[in-house]
């Protein structure tokens, strides 16, 4: 069976591009704080969501709606309304992280399929099975901190489908629990849907040297001609003792395309591409590449070599935790 390609869409145009490029499934979110990519100019209003889902269904693709931030006390209705609206718009599933929201969806929208977001940081079979038994979760998006053998171990102990990231921005933190952005800006992906919110980012280029500041703090400086990273604290340069460098993580992108056969053997159902903040050009190129890869694998043909370095943060790529060579 062909592995499912799950593609990002930050705009209706990107959704159409993903579908045209061969996405089996597209994930997207409403234009508010209910999803973890709450960026300026991005996401879908209710009419756009309805039209986007209809377009995808006409062409045989599914749409998952990410409602994967954690509701603010007193404002739970905003998130609950998003679940109801996703069902009305025809979503094939919602991607949730908060147990309260999962409970709400289970009780009030029992026929709406529920996926567990990477933001829930479910990293072992026990917790995944708990979500399945308690809230009827059918699929879990695994955190990007697991190796391929660990993923295989999880799949051997659960019937819940697993979805893993194979390309795009690499988050090495325990997702849903990372508050680094909050320290510098007061806003986080967990509560506000923004890691390093653009409103708190400032770039300044002088004589070819590019400084990036987050919340007023200089977080990295790149010399003329050097690739620029995203302005996230986890990829910032820090001084420790006499050394300065990327303390947490180098500015590189995840690319696990060569591990697809191993991920299939490990029992993975779906391959997820990160990047709802990216353009339709990115979406089309990456989706086409990965669709060709899984089709080749299914047909027993050699996997095509990717041409994706140019699209990658830092113009460099890694297989991340899937191959934990540092252990």
């Amino acid at each position: 069976m062909v592995m499912e390609i799950v593609c990002p869409a930050g705009t209706p145009a990107a959704l159409r591009a993903a579908v045209k490029a061969g996405a089996h499934t597209v994930y997207c979110g409403f234009n508010d704080e209910t999803n973890a990519r709450n960026f300026p100019g991005l996401n879908f209003n209710r009419n756009e969501m309805r039209a986007g889902i209809a377009f995808a269904h006409e062409h045989g693709s599914k749409v998952l709606v990410a409602i994967n931030t954690f509701p603010r006390a007193g404002d739970e209705a905003i998130w609950q309304r998003a679940i109801g609206d996703a069902e009305i718009c025809g979503a094939d599933a919602v991607i949730l992280a908060d147990p309260g929201l999962l409970d709400y969806a289970t009780r009030t929208h029992p026929r709406l399929r529920r996926h567990l977001s990477v933001q829930a940081a479910a990293a072992n079979a026990d917790v995944i099975n708990f979500y399945a038994e308690t809230f009827g979760v059918k699929r879990v998006v695994l955190p990007r901190v697991l190796s391929v053998p660990e993923i295989a171990a999880i799949n051997s102990e659960t019937d819940v489908e697993t979805e893993v990231f194979v390309f795009g921005g690499l988050c090495v933190m325990a997702e849903g629990r990372c508050s680094m952005s909050s320290y510098a800006t007061g806003l986080s992906p967990n509560m506000n849907g923004v890691c390093s919110p653009a409103s708190h980012v400032e770039y300044r280029e002088d004589q070819g040297v590019l400084d990036a500041r987050l919340g007023g703090y200089l977080i990295h400086r790149v010399e003329r001609g050097e690739p620029a990273p995203y302005p996230t604290l986890c990829k910032g340069c820090f001084s420790a003792g006499e050394k300065a460098g990327h303390l947490f993580e180098d500015p590189v992108s995840l690319n696990a395309e060569k591990l697809i056969p191993q991920l299939q053997k490990a029992g993975v159902t779906a391959l997820k591409i990160e990047g709802r903040q990216r353009s339709k050009s990115y979406v089309a190129q990456v989706v086409r590449n990965f669709r060709m890869a899984v089709d080749a694998l299914d047909a027993g043909r050699p996997m095509p070599e990717g041409m994706l370095a140019r699209l990658s943060e830092g113009q460099a790529m890694t297989t991340g935790a899937y191959k934990k060579t540092w252990r």
């Binding site: 300026p40 100019g41 409103s199 400032e202 690739p227 990273p229 990216r278 353009s279 339709k280 990115y282």
Partner: peptide, 30 residues
């Protein structure tokens, strides 16, 4: 082109209100 890719390669430079620049880029892309 992809805006982020042009940013990574330093072919595109954003200064000033990053949120506004991002909104314009996303609106035009859509």
């Amino acid at each position: 082109f992809d805006g982020d890719a042009l940013f990574f390669s330093r072919d595109l430079v954003i200064e000033g209100d990053t949120g506004a620049a991002l909104a314009l880029r996303n609106a035009i892309d859509d």
